[in-house]
């Protein structure tokens, strides 16, 4: 039972990791850059959501949608003001810029909201569900359902929409996409908006589970083993990697931490990633693209 409990917690948290990692992978695919400010994007979501809820006294759903709009705007601003300026700069400069951005955003959160942990007013039902002896808190169940719905929406968007097609084309061959008359600028702006939105959603869900505090930006680090495990350029890999890391973390936290007095929860994912990279240098699903010889 304990095992199943840990497993389920792992799956739920892992699904959120997968969602946040998705944004990270999209940016990598579109521009080859790692977004080191991803954790701060996650951080902004729940704070903004809380502010809207308490200041305007509106229901969670309204605040949630408001937060999405804000996040999309934040992503757009970052792309316009930072990323676009570095269009012809080497990738490493872009990565450094995101690192700077992460300090800036983290500082802003600290100044505006301080560092105390806040909690969401109860959004989901409070009474735990008992499914065959396994206790599931509704917030876990709902988070999982929301993530799954979003993942389905995104796969349909990427597969069938015109913008989704353009995003995949730009990731595949930027020059060729330009020659189709696709606007790479537009695709990059879309990518940053989506990445910022999924990060915010992940943050809001995590905030509902664990409370909201600046330490949440650590997910920016957790997402690294997730995407490296899945393969940096694979959307599918990000999601499966998210589940795997979530499960591994929770099992390690449940079984090993009591033995050594804690701390392994955060280390084990990196150990797993190291082992897998030895066997598969491009991650489980990563590729250098299809090469025909």
């Amino acid at each position: 039972m304990f095992f199943l409990q840990m497993l389920i917690n792992g799956i739920v948290v892992g699904s959120i990791y997968g969602l946040v990692a998705l944004g990270f992978v999209l940016i990598y695919r579109a521009s080859g850059a790692l977004n080191l400010a991803n954790g701060e994007f996650v951080l902004f979501g729940p704070y903004v959501c809380l502010v809207i809820m308490t200041a305007l006294n509106v229901p969670f759903l309204v605040a949630f949608i408001g937060t999405l709009l804000f996040s999309a705007f934040l992503g757009l601003v970052v792309e316009r003001l930072v990323i676009r300026q570095l269009q012809n700069a080497p990738t490493i400069s872009v990565i450094m810029a995101t690192l700077g951005l992460s300090s800036l955003l983290a500082g802003a959160v600290h100044i505006i909201w301080g560092h105390t942990t806040r909690t969401f007013p109860p959004v989901f039902p409070q009474t735990p569900l008992n499914i065959g002896g396994i206790i599931i808190t509704p917030v876990y169940l709902w988070s999982f359902i929301i993530v799954m719905i979003l993942l389905v929406i995104f796969s349909i968007f990427f597969k069938y929409s015109k913008i989704g097609l353009a995003m995949r084309a730009v990731a595949d061959d930027r020059q060729a996409a330009l020659s189709m008359g696709m606007s790479v600028k537009f695709v990059l702006a879309m990518t940053w908006m989506i990445a910022s939105m999924v990060a915010a959603i992940g943050g809001i869900l995590l905030g509902n589970i664990n409370g909201v505090s600046p330490t949440m930006s650590a997910i920016g680090l957790t997402v690294l083993p997730v995407v490296i495990l899945g393969g940096l350029d694979s959307v599918m890999g990000a999601i499966i990697g998210g589940f795997l890391i979530g499960i591994i973390q929770n099992l390690a936290g449940g079984y090993l931490d009591p033995l050594v007095g804690g701390g392994l929860k955060d280390v084990v994912p990196f150990i797993v990633v190291l082992l897998i990279l030895m066997l598969k240098p491009h991650g489980l699903f990563g590729s250098r693209g299809i090469e025909r010889v």
């Binding site: 097609l165 353009a166 084309a169 061959d173 060729a176 189709m180 696709m182 693209g289």
Partner: peptide, 26 residues
């Protein structure tokens, strides 16, 4: 004006049909 670039430059991860849709983008 449409250029078919040197070296074909088809989108490798897209299906044949999706590549054709990409051509019709504008």
């Amino acid at each position: 004006i449409f250029l078919c670039m040197e070296g074909r430059r088809i989108f490798k991860d897209l299906t044949v049909e999706e590549n054709l849709y990409a051509g019709a983008y504008t």
